[in-house]
Nucleic acid binder design. Sequence first.
RNA 1: GGCGGGCUAGCUCAAUUGGCAGAGCAAGUGACUCUUAAUCACUAGGUUCGGGGUUCGAGUCCCCGGCCCGUCACCA
Length: 512
Amino acid sequence: MTPEEPIEQPEQQIGEQKLISDRLAKAAQLRSQGIDPYPPRFDRTHTTAEAAELFEKLETASTNEDDHPQTEAIRVAGRIMARRGQGKASFIDLKDGTGSVQIFARQNTMGDEAYAIIDLLDIGDIIGVEGAVIRTRRGEISVAAAEITVLTKSMRPLPDKWGGLQDQEVRFRQRYLDLISNERAMKNALLRSHVVRAMREFMHSRGFVEVETPILVPVAAGAQATPFETHHNQLDRDLFLRIATELYLKKLIVGGIERVFEIGRLFRNEGLDHDHNPEFTTIESYQAYADYNDVMEMVENMVAHIAQETTGSMVLPEIEGVRPEIDLTPPWPRLDLRTEIKERTGIDFVESSDAESLSQAMRERGIHVEEGSAWGRLLDKVISSEVEPNLIEPHFLVDYPVAMSPLAKRKPGSDDIVERFEAFVVGSELCNAFTELNDPVDQRERFEQQERMRSEFDDVEADRLDEDFLVAIEHGMPPTGGLGLGIDRLTMLIAGEDSIREILLFPAMRNI
RNA sequence: GGCGGGCUAGCUCAAUUGGCAGAGCAAGUGACUCUUAAUCACUAGGUUCGGGGUUCGAGUCCCCGGCCCGUCACCA
């Protein structure tokens, strides 16, 4: 504001700013001609796929080879992906949700005034086009434009039409650009939706009831993980984001909803990598009067069904450099966990039944030992580093130690083995399931054991005691088989992706 | 958190041993009424991720920081 300050010259804009201001100027020019660059609606009659279909039918029905068939006038809408000027004619590649179609605009068919709008169009703009569908001399099915309507003027340039969008960081942070530019991104997004739909259908067909349970919870129980913390102001109460849906769903089993499931987001305050995101989606299901054998049968059939519905086959194709062909056809082999660990490492977890002897056995075999870990955590390490990576075709690992399974029921006649299984495919865990512990006295002891681990081993991820849940099952929970399955990982498997970030539309990223 | 790789125009990528920061697409102007990575001519476009250092001279070498990727650790 001081007089010495130079007066701002309308500086020549450069780089990205120039690209944007050029487009703003075109929007202003449209307005000056009485054209709204953002009109409220457009009466689309055909998608691009329908337009092509319409024309092909007409062409097939045409008897005369010399005919130049053209449909009645239709209206399509979409985003301009490319344009080729040809003097007083122009070609536009128009893309919508079903595909794309070429727009053929000629000055002498549109008229000078209507054709003038071409000069104000940019790649990325969303337009509506009215005209007959024809085939050009070069054989391209095209909408011969009678009128072009700007539906949304775009202010920023799209990624390069040929090089596309390669930058992974931009692909994840601005997924909309990925969806526009990369077919694979769109394919994965649609697949994810299809997987969830097929899963719901499968569960409903088996008589399961879908419910929603609280995400903000007073106790983050039901799994071994670090929760996110938050606070409710009016209640003046600390709350957590759920780390599992398990305990609420079992309360519903107590209440008499005998088959229940929830598909929902879980939150775990842990690290990020190619198959972990702080928020992710699972299905959990609970079935009264069933045990883990019933659940195993359900899982293999559900996963095979979803693969069949989404890809047309229970056999997933080989993906070069990622995985071999994967046959999901049930039944999947059941492997006894103890036997499998023994065969692969020589470690018998029944013999090495305390943390010290297990650590010793692990060190002898060159397995990394985290000092001060509880026995269950050590064994988990053995499984994840020595067994899991070798399970490429689908397998169930069956019968886990009670020490690492505080919510699972013991096998009849066994003190230290529970009826629990996990499914593995392509070297990673797909689900975790067990016959639910419904003895309230035993359950209370297990929780107390977990609480002791929290203090003794400084294990912040030990499961927590949930008094409300104990009261619930003290009223009597029927024998129940339960399941938790990661939907993002299942989708990764079917999509053949090895990063969860290719499946989550908006993966967690650091602030820039 | 450790180690390794990466970050150059809106996008995709070059840049020799440390020696004038380039191309294609996109953009602007002009030509062109059946093109499809249209073509042709011309124009403009750069804090080389940020900061510091070495040097006559740094995209390039050194140090600090940011973000992304990979890997190990951690974790389902």
